[in-house]
């Protein structure tokens, strides 16, 4: 995404091919971020599409092409919040049993427990309020800096740090409990492996 500034300038100058290049650069992260924000596969596509449409139509309003990434994700998160509130999308629960792909009884169980662990993290993240959850996603998944997150969310850097701290604290507390459970589960798997 480092050369997006050049593409943005080209698009602002009327080169619509530059938009297709920007789309290719950002499409995966856009859809996946939208999915993480809403938990809905269908909404994720709608959100990403709307973000790209608005990006194209309003590209002339972006004063500094180097800020495209935060500008785009600011647009995307706004759309995601709006659509998620409208749809009240339920968090999908993955069928963990479908993800197991070994025949080994113990491996299946170990895999199951590890993936359930990640699923539990997601469940905890999905219980956070909208702003904390967005902060977590932008920080850990999108790897935005504090200042970038502040630009995306339209708040002060101090607010971002505060939300991040609170969210991490809540996550860690829940994670520690789940990790203890996981260890117990793995130990049981060892006992029952033939």
């Amino acid at each position: 995404m480092e050369n997006s500034a050049t593409l943005v300038q080209e698009l602002q100058n009327g080169n619509e091919k530059a938009f297709e290049a920007l789309f290719e650069l950002y499409k995966v992260k856009a859809v996946r971020t939208a999915y993480l924000l809403t938990g809905s596969r269908i909404l994720a596509d709608d959100i990403a599409q709307e973000a790209f449409v608005q990006c194209f139509l309003k590209i002339h309003t972006l004063k500094d092409p180097c800020q495209f990434k935060t500008w785009f994700f600011k647009c995307l998160t706004r759309i995601a919040w709006k659509m998620a509130n409208k749809e009240k999308a339920a968090t999908p629960v993955e069928n963990i049993f479908e993800m197991a792909d070994t025949n080994e009884c113990g491996e299946i169980e170990k895999d199951f427990l590890k993936k359930e662990f990640s699923a539990d993290i997601m469940k905890i993240i999905n219980t956070l309020d909208e702003k904390q959850k967005t902060t977590i996603l932008l920080y850990y998944y999108n790897e935005f800096s504090i200042s970038e997150i502040a630009a995306v969310m339209g708040c002060f850097e101090g607010t971002v740090k505060s939300r991040l701290h609170t969210a991490r604290k809540n996550l860690k507390k829940e994670l520690d409990q789940k990790e203890a459970y996981l260890k117990e589960g793995l130990n049981n798997a060892v006992i029952y492996k033939f």
Binding site: R32, Y35, L36, K115, F117, S118, A119, I121, M122, I125, I136, L137, Y140, Y141, L171, L175
Partner: peptide, 10 residues
């Protein structure tokens, strides 16, 4: 762990 969970999710 958080990053991994998010990455696996998507």
């Amino acid at each position: 762990k958080i990053k991994k969970a998010l990455t696996q999710e998507v």
